[in-house]
Amino acid sequence: MTTLTAPGTTATPTRRPSATRGLVRTVLLLHRPALYLWAGLFVALAALLLWLYGPGTDAAAAAWREYDRCTKATCAYDQDAILRYKSYSQYASIALAFLPFLVAAWAGASLIGREMETGTAQLAWTQSVSPARWLAVKLAVPAALVTVGTSVLVVLHRGMWVRGQGRIDNAKGWTDTFVFHANGPTTVALALSGLAVGALAGIRLRGSLSALVMSAVWTVGVRAALSLALPYLWPTVRTVTSLTHDGPTSLGITVHDGLLTSTGARLADPQCGSSHSSECSTLYHRLDAVSFYTDSHPQSHYWPLQLMATGLVLVLTALVLLVTFRLLKRDTGSAPLTKGAAL
């Protein structure tokens, strides 16, 4: 029996499921092992950082107070609490610093590289999904998870680190390379950079193993280049001290140091020491040196340096994404492929 539509009425159009929404579900289902691994890593690191923020810091701080009050040859204090805090906080900082390498390796090997290698990507392009939309969704889903998860871990790490400052004598300072990045948004930016590079490697090499290697090498290179460029991303503060000191005095991250002559010229530090030594005094007189100088970054420069470095990495990430999409468009065009073309 056929149902007729009454005259003057409009048939309700059939609502078709969104291709993008379906692709998001497909990405989550296809990469469930990576999602579970990321969730497990996030929970483990968050739990460790929360423990360090609370009982870990309190126990270590109490042990240090007992140690500092000690006036005898032998004193009772909780040395294990101090060592636990030192080890676990260092593990947490290193784990956060290496998250971008894990993201890059996974993006290159599994997210893009394997699908290009096995033909899964080409099959998806025949399902009314353009290659550009496919890549955009493939990157947007993990980018959101990585950004939110890494940001939370960075906030927890910074809270833990701040709470230990001034209370735990062997706590790492802000200039430590792992602490510096784990306390700020450069970790998030480096993770997103790793994701973008993994996508580029997967599209360009179309192989999981080769894309994994390229992604990891690129991320190592970016991290190394950032470490070299970091001290020059913000103007330094010059500190001038007397030659009676043992050497130049740094405020934090040292960029340049040495000797200043009476004409204002800069000389390398001969590593002699204080002018109280007659040998050093003679050397400084012969060099016409009048003081030590240091161009360095104090702790107040932490956020300017962090934001400049983060912006630099994000610009580089945007350029990598632009190249990736252009490369994909050159190879496939912008329209969805037909089944025959995919085969």
Results as ranks from 00 to 15, higher is better:
1 M>W: 08
1 M>Y: 10
2 T>K: 10
7 P>C: 01
8 G>M: 01
14 T>G: 03
14 T>D: 05
15 R>K: 08
17 P>T: 13
18 S>Q: 05
19 A>M: 12
22 G>Q: 13
23 L>P: 01
25 R>C: 06
26 T>S: 13
33 P>I: 08
37 L>N: 01
37 L>W: 12
38 W>S: 14
41 L>W: 10
46 A>M: 06
51 W>L: 14
52 L>Y: 03
54 G>A: 14
56 G>N: 11
58 D>W: 02
61 A>M: 10
62 A>N: 06
62 A>E: 13
66 E>V: 00
67 Y>W: 11
68 D>W: 09
69 R>Y: 00
74 T>K: 12
74 T>A: 12
76 A>D: 15
77 Y>R: 01
77 Y>P: 01
78 D>C: 00
79 Q>C: 00
81 A>P: 07
81 A>L: 07
83 L>T: 11
83 L>H: 03
86 K>R: 14
87 S>R: 13
88 Y>E: 11
89 S>P: 01
90 Q>F: 08
94 I>H: 06
98 F>I: 14
98 F>H: 03
99 L>W: 12
102 L>C: 13
103 V>Y: 03
104 A>Y: 04
107 A>P: 09
110 S>L: 05
110 S>T: 11
113 G>D: 09
114 R>C: 00
121 A>I: 04
122 Q>V: 09
124 A>R: 10
125 W>E: 00
130 S>M: 04
136 A>T: 12
137 V>T: 12
138 K>L: 02
140 A>D: 06
141 V>Y: 04
149 G>F: 02
155 V>D: 09
158 R>L: 05
159 G>Y: 03
162 V>R: 14
164 G>K: 02
167 R>C: 01
167 R>M: 03
171 A>P: 00
173 G>R: 10
174 W>F: 09
178 F>W: 14
178 F>Y: 15
178 F>I: 00
183 N>H: 02
184 G>E: 01
191 A>S: 15
197 V>C: 12
201 A>L: 06
210 S>H: 10
211 A>M: 08
211 A>V: 05
215 S>L: 05
216 A>I: 15
218 W>T: 14
220 V>C: 07
221 G>E: 03
221 G>V: 05
226 L>H: 03
226 L>D: 09
232 Y>L: 06
232 Y>C: 00
235 P>Q: 11
238 R>I: 08
238 R>M: 13
239 T>N: 12
240 V>H: 04
241 T>Q: 10
242 S>V: 03
243 L>N: 06
246 D>Y: 07
248 P>S: 12
250 S>Q: 10
261 T>Y: 10
261 T>Q: 11
261 T>D: 10
262 S>D: 15
263 T>V: 02
269 D>K: 09
271 Q>Y: 13
272 C>G: 11
273 G>P: 09
276 H>D: 15
277 S>Q: 11
279 E>N: 12
280 C>T: 12
286 R>D: 14
287 L>H: 09
287 L>P: 02
288 D>T: 07
288 D>V: 01
289 A>E: 03
291 S>H: 11
300 S>M: 01
301 H>M: 01
302 Y>F: 15
303 W>F: 12
311 G>Y: 11
312 L>Y: 00
315 V>I: 15
318 A>I: 10
319 L>N: 07
321 L>D: 07
324 T>K: 02
327 L>K: 04
330 R>C: 00
332 T>D: 01
332 T>L: 15
332 T>F: 15
332 T>H: 15
334 S>E: 13
335 A>I: 05
336 P>W: 08
343 L>E: 14
